[in-house]
Computed example of a mutant assay.
Amino acid sequence: MWRSLASNMLTILIVGLFLFAGVILWGKNEYSSEGPLSEAICFQVPSGTNMSRVSRKLEEDGAVSSSSIFRIGVKYSDKAQDLKAGSYLVEPGASMESIIDTITRGGASTCGTEIVYRVGVTRVLAEVRELDPATNSFVERAEFVPGVDETPAVYTEKKAEADTRYRIALAEGVTSWQVVESLKAMDVLEGDPGRRPAEGSLAPDSYEVRPGTSREAVLTEMKDRQDKRIADAWEARSSDAAVESPEEMLILASIIEKETAVADERGVVASVFTNRLNRGMRLQTDPTVIYGVTKGEGVLGRGLRQSELRGVTPWNTYVIEGLPPTPIANPGLESLVAAVNPEQTDYVFFVADGTGGHAFAETLEEHNRNVAKWRQIEAERNNN
């Protein structure tokens, strides 16, 4: 009898162990396999919440099949203390494992509201936009010029929300004065920006910021990025470069940046200036003359006068030989690379072609024909 009872108990124990192992395997599969979510959602993790409340909300939103398995997975992955407040894009079919990684990894939120300050050559524009999870594209809620336009209510509303993200998008070709003045207009930043950075020393790029970030810290990050770009571009220079130092490269790159907004033209424009420098010709470029008039403080807003084209300034390349003494704007990486890796051409002239690009020429005769075409296009536009 005792032998039979012991045999039955052993059988029950073995069956129980198999069932327990099966449950564990099922749980592991549920944890790592495709989740039940059919459409992307923007999942918010409020500040001060805990993983237990997060797991229940995920189950309510249909993102996980079991909040209990989710919590067990969090425990065994040892990520319970790594929960980060923010708004996160949860993709269709996301597994519990991937969701845990998303909400504990840290860094910027991946969905929700974003306020972007776009610093352009003519103005700074603030945009309030939200990511639509269904299309994974941004929907614009409002835009305005800080310090000029009336502040939209949605901007004030979203600034009060803890998970709103902030980004500064710095365009190629802006001057250091424009950058500093733009940062002053951004009420999400704090502090005095300090001394204006040297022209050309700031990297056009996208910068994530947080409320309370100091203006000086933003400028420091911009300078650090530009320093690295300058060093990398100079290291990769070709033997065809006409400039003899990183400083000269930066000056030439700023001129290239201001002369063309067409990415594919940068290397050709660089070749024109390289050929002119090698032949001892003056650069004769209008953007340098404009900088001599404005010193980079604002936009000229009109055509150059003949007196300005003839006027002597350190930046008037119709008068001076070679490069001006300083950059005339903050060039992007592509212009830095073009300045020391020009295309191989015999062009020494170029003029606008009416399409946003330029017509290039090797001879003065050819250039004069291109200029005549451009003047005809201008005249037709003025008559319409």
Rank of each mutant, 00 (worst) to 15 (best):
S33D: 13
S33K: 14
E34F: 07
G35C: 10
P36R: 04
P36V: 10
L37N: 05
L37D: 10
E39P: 01
I41W: 02
I41G: 05
I41M: 02
C42Y: 05
C42P: 08
F43E: 01
F43T: 05
V45K: 06
V45M: 02
P46N: 02
S47E: 13
G48K: 14
T49S: 15
T49A: 13
S55F: 01
S55N: 04
R56H: 07
K57M: 13
E59R: 12
E59C: 04
E60D: 15
D61N: 07
G62L: 08
G62V: 13
A63W: 04
S65H: 12
S65V: 12
S65E: 15
S66W: 11
S66K: 13
S67M: 10
S68R: 09
S68G: 03
R71C: 03
R71H: 05
R71W: 03
I72Y: 13
V74L: 12
K75Q: 12
Y76D: 01
S77Y: 11
D78F: 10
A80R: 13
A80V: 00
A80Y: 10
Q81I: 02
Q81K: 15
D82Q: 14
G86D: 04
G86Q: 02
G86M: 07
G86T: 00
L89G: 09
V90D: 02
E91D: 04
E91P: 04
A94R: 05
I99G: 03
I99V: 13
D101V: 08
D101F: 05
T102D: 03
T102K: 06
T104D: 13
R105I: 09
G107Y: 03
G107E: 01
A108H: 08
S109P: 09
C111G: 11
C111N: 10
C111S: 11
G112Y: 07
T113D: 15
I115V: 14
Y117T: 04
Y117S: 11
Y117K: 12
R118G: 06
R118H: 11
V121K: 14
V124W: 01
E127I: 12
R129N: 13
L131K: 14
D132V: 00
P133G: 01
A134L: 07
N136Y: 01
N136P: 00
N136S: 10
V139L: 14
V139Y: 06
V139M: 10
E140R: 12
E140S: 12
R141K: 15
R141W: 04
R141S: 05
A142R: 15
A142V: 08
E143V: 04
V145P: 01
P146G: 02
D149N: 14
T151D: 03
T151I: 15
T151F: 10
P152G: 00
E157S: 14
E157A: 11
K158Y: 10
K159Y: 01
A160M: 11
A160D: 15
E161A: 12
E161Y: 07
T164E: 09
T164I: 06
T164W: 08
R165N: 08
Y166I: 11
I168G: 00
A171K: 07
